[in-house]
Design a protein around this nucleic acid. Structure first.
Lengths: 311, 311
DNA sequence: AGTGATCGCTGACTAAAGTCAGAGAATGTC
DNA sequence: GACATTCTCTGACTTTAGTCAGCGATCACT
């Protein structure tokens, strides 16, 4: 992070990534070529492709495709002339507009889909069943790792929209999974009010971490600083779509870093017996069972871990 | 091949490939973006990137980048004005010209290299050592399989330039690997003259297969049709860079297909004891040891395989 | 020396991609 | 109801990318 030089360890990995990019960009160039077969500029083709069957707001399209407002407008006008698209005002706000594919437009989109399939199919055609399996497995793995790499952990206010959104999903899941259900109010009772505390007050400070994948919140975790020595890990949660990628571990590591930065010597946490994978995570990270330290009605296990000072 | 419909078996694989393309094309788009940071059109940036330190023939550049002659000329003129490139005549033919980077151009190229590295590095930075290893391993695997998929087997005249080129490399390798060296003339003595035979003559017909990866010959294999019943497999070879990808097996399969198409009932071949991997290939493909059937001075093992009729 | 082919360059294009400054309508705010 | 704001659209651009025909120099072959 701090160093800009490239270590020899990295060099081989970087070379691999660059070779990979080079090769794959050829393939993707081929995809563009096949789109051009329809005698339509690539910009228009991409737009057709990006238009969901039930339409999309122009704002969204602009940000998603990175287009200038005037440019998008012109592209849509051209597609309208071709009878592939209609643009009409949004229901709630007549300034905003939505673009939808016509029946003819949907047909055209299906053709692009088919071209895309063909290209993929021609790739597969020259491979044996075993080679195919290896290719698709490796692709899935690359995809998974790229998603992991694009995950960003950000400290946000505990009462921000993204934090509350994650907590909602988290609590909903707890309600489903706990044997005896889950009532947030009962749980919140012994928790502190969110927000930044006034320094010197006795309200413990909460550091709230949200994990984003492409600006979409997909997980969270909090560190409660109880006093100068002890912190509590709480609300570590990852959205179901993003599980199995090691994101919970990443959140935990970051929370521990934060704790160390504050000079804390000890972290503790509680957990419910229904959350087996959480317990496995904590144990594998060096957390050990300790005596009950709170009166959380939903807790069955209490763990603690001693932190070494920062290097 | 014959069917245009997409089977349900394929559908999952195709979906995987398309997801993959989509995700990776975002990354590569990011790469293009980072190149544009230098305030130079992408075409020029790519050209700088493609120019090897010791220069390149314009012909080669045109084919490699797929550029029109006029267009390339203009790009080079622009880079010359910027003092990044010099174009001078080739040594042997004053019509041909070579482009080379100046010192300033080499610096600029280094900057692009660095940008590329940075992007790759930023990908790696957010991954743990294990995750990195998984990513690069999977990328290498995808690369390998894509290369396999792009291999094309073509029947060529046995005296074509590509065929002779492969044979040269093949014989050179045999000379290195055989305990007692290898002299092509001694080997050729008992082999038939290349070329298409006159039908009805007694000169056996030779089908010569060359494996191409991006128009580059990377392997070969031949089928000698001795009579209506028996064929001989000869000169199966794969360039060292392309080994471990199953190309030899592919060549062998295709030669067997050709033999079946001609109604042959039996294939045989000989091999030297130094070529262990070749023997392993033949055994795994159902070839079994048979009695010596020729007087090839370099052969130690003779294999045969019975062909079933075409389905 | 003559002839035909090859190679790269220039001029003259076109199409696509993208930018920017308003205009005009709808909405939110005081 | 005045005023600022938001959103899209249009007109008027520029830049990039790419194509095509023809020219002049050079080469290979006779």
């Amino acid at each position: 992070m701090s160093t800009h030089a490239i270590s020899p360890d990295d060099a081989a990995d970087i070379a691999q990534i660059r070779r990979f990019n080079r090769l794959v960009s050829q393939r993707i160039g081929a995809l563009d070529q096949s789109y051009l077969q329809r005698g339509r500029p690539l910009g228009e083709a991409r737009l057709i492709f990006e238009l969901a069957p039930d339409g999309a707001d122009l704002r969204l399209l602009r940000t998603r495709l990175g287009l200038d407002s005037g440019y998008l407008s012109r592209l849509l006008r051209s597609l309208e002339r071709q009878g592939l698209v209609v643009v009409d005002a949004a229901d709630d706000d007549a300034r905003q507009r939505r673009a939808r594919l016509t029946a003819k437009g949907a047909e055209e989109r299906a053709v692009y889909d088919l071209l895309s399939d063909r290209l993929a199919q021609s790739l597969l055609a020259s491979l044996s069943a075993r080679e195919r399996a290896r290719l698709t497995a490796a692709m899935a793995e690359v995809e998974r790792m790229l998603r992991v790499a694009s995950v960003e952990l950000r400290l946000v206010p505990a009462d921000s929209a993204d934090a509350l959104g994650c907590l909602d999903s988290y609590f909903a899941e707890l309600a489903r999974r706990f044997d005896d259900g889950f009532d947030p109010s009962k749980h919140q009772a012994h928790a502190p009010a969110p927000g930044t505390p006034t320094p010197g007050s006795h309200i413990p400070e909460t550091l709230f971490l949200v994990a984003y994948s492409d600006a979409l919140p997909i997980g969270c975790g909090a560190l409660l600083i109880e006093d100068a020595e002890v912190g509590e890990i709480k609300r570590v949660w990852v959205a179901p779509v993003a599980r199995g990628l090691g994101i919970a571990r990443k959140l935990l590591h970051r929370l521990e870093d934060l704790a160390r930065q504050r000079g804390l010597a000890m972290l503790r946490l509680d957990t419910n017996r229904a959350l087996a994978e959480a317990q496995a995570l904590y144990r594998s990270e060096g957390y050990e069972p300790i005596a009950r330290y709170n009166d959380n009605p939903y807790a069955h296990h209490w763990f603690g871990k001693r932190l070494e000072a920062e290097a």
